[in-house]
Simulated assay, not measured.
Amino acid sequence: MSLQDPKLFGKVAVLFGGSSAEREISLMSGTGVLDALRSRGVDAHAFDPSQRELSELKREGFARCFVALHGRHGEDGTVQGALELLGIPYTGSGVMASSVAMDKVMTKRIWQADGLPTPKYVRLAFDQQSREQIMAVPDVLGLPVIVKPPREGSSIGVTKVQGYSQMQDAVALSAKYDADVLCEEFIEGEEVTCAVLGHGLDARALPVVRIAAPEGAYDYQNKYFTDDVKYQCPSGLPEAEEREIQRITLAAYRTLGCRGWGRADVMIRASDRKPFLLEMNTSPGMTSHSLVPMSARAAGIAYEELCLRVLASATLDATGGSL
């Protein structure tokens, strides 16, 4: 697909908004993408699946969709499955990769099976959340421990637990967003993120972004609504560390079957500089604070060009490649 002639994309729907807990972020991402595509002459239109039936995409003659939805019913394979049935190519990973990557427990199981480094964890299913079971978690993982819903993003429902007395409240908060609760070993060190563009052997990792949040609080508020977080891209990491993070990110992306684009969150353990994979985002943020556009800029890819490249990669599971 040529990026030079925007008419070749046909009529494009930018899917954003949605009904997940990340709706507010999706609205910001989608607005940015919509403006960028229109600025390059693409016939792009806003489409909020929480306000309109997806079947309208077919009736209104949309040729492809840019998925700027985050969280459930947007990033978890459900919208992707609907678009497969409608036969409308879409950006990002397919049904299975989207579904698996949205579930942090399933993602960790696959990474562990492939020998990729990810923090130790305990899954508390909905029927395994008695006081005794909750209080036993720090005995297994140590303290501090991270408690979070396994199928949410953007740091929603996440608690860093410093002591046993906080465990009960942390699990209760997480359980508001997901019946299951993921408790994860806390990796003391630096947080980085690494984006990927492409599919299969053609996928390539972009420059690593280093994240420095105030008092280590890279939470929902600091991610999207303050300028207190400092980002470094180029990361300033030793070249060997940068290469290793890019290597495991590419391996993590490929083993999940991701395509189009994605972004892995990684912790570098301070004690030995070993990187650990936290999660894979298959519909990364595209706001003014977002990390994929920042990484792309460092690679010489402007925001508008990034949006065009992602749009050009739109495909269906049935075809398995860009259209």
Rank of each mutant, 00 (worst) to 15 (best):
G236K: 04
G262R: 11
P234H: 08
C258H: 09
L237H: 08
E244T: 10
I268N: 12
L256R: 00
P238Y: 09
Q232K: 05
L256T: 04
E242D: 13
E244C: 03
R247K: 15
R254W: 05
E241P: 02
T255Y: 10
R254F: 04
G236N: 04
C258F: 01
E244W: 01
S235Q: 10
R254K: 07
R243P: 00
R269C: 06
P234E: 13
R263E: 04
Q246N: 08
P238N: 11
E241R: 14
A264L: 11
R269F: 00
C233K: 03
T255W: 08
A251Y: 07
P234V: 13
C258W: 07
I245V: 15
A264K: 06
P234T: 11
L250A: 06
L250P: 05
W261P: 03
W261R: 06
Q232E: 15
C258G: 14
M267Q: 07
C258V: 14
P238G: 08
Y231L: 10
A264T: 15
R259V: 11
R243E: 15
E241H: 02
I248V: 14
E244S: 02
L256V: 12
R263F: 01
L237K: 09
Y231W: 06
L237Y: 02
S235W: 05
M267G: 01
I248M: 03
L250Q: 12
A252D: 06
A240W: 12
W261C: 05
W261E: 14
P238H: 08
G236M: 08
Q246A: 08
I268L: 15
M267T: 10
Q232I: 04
P238F: 01
R254C: 00
G257D: 03
E239R: 11
R254G: 05
E242W: 04
E242T: 15
E244L: 11
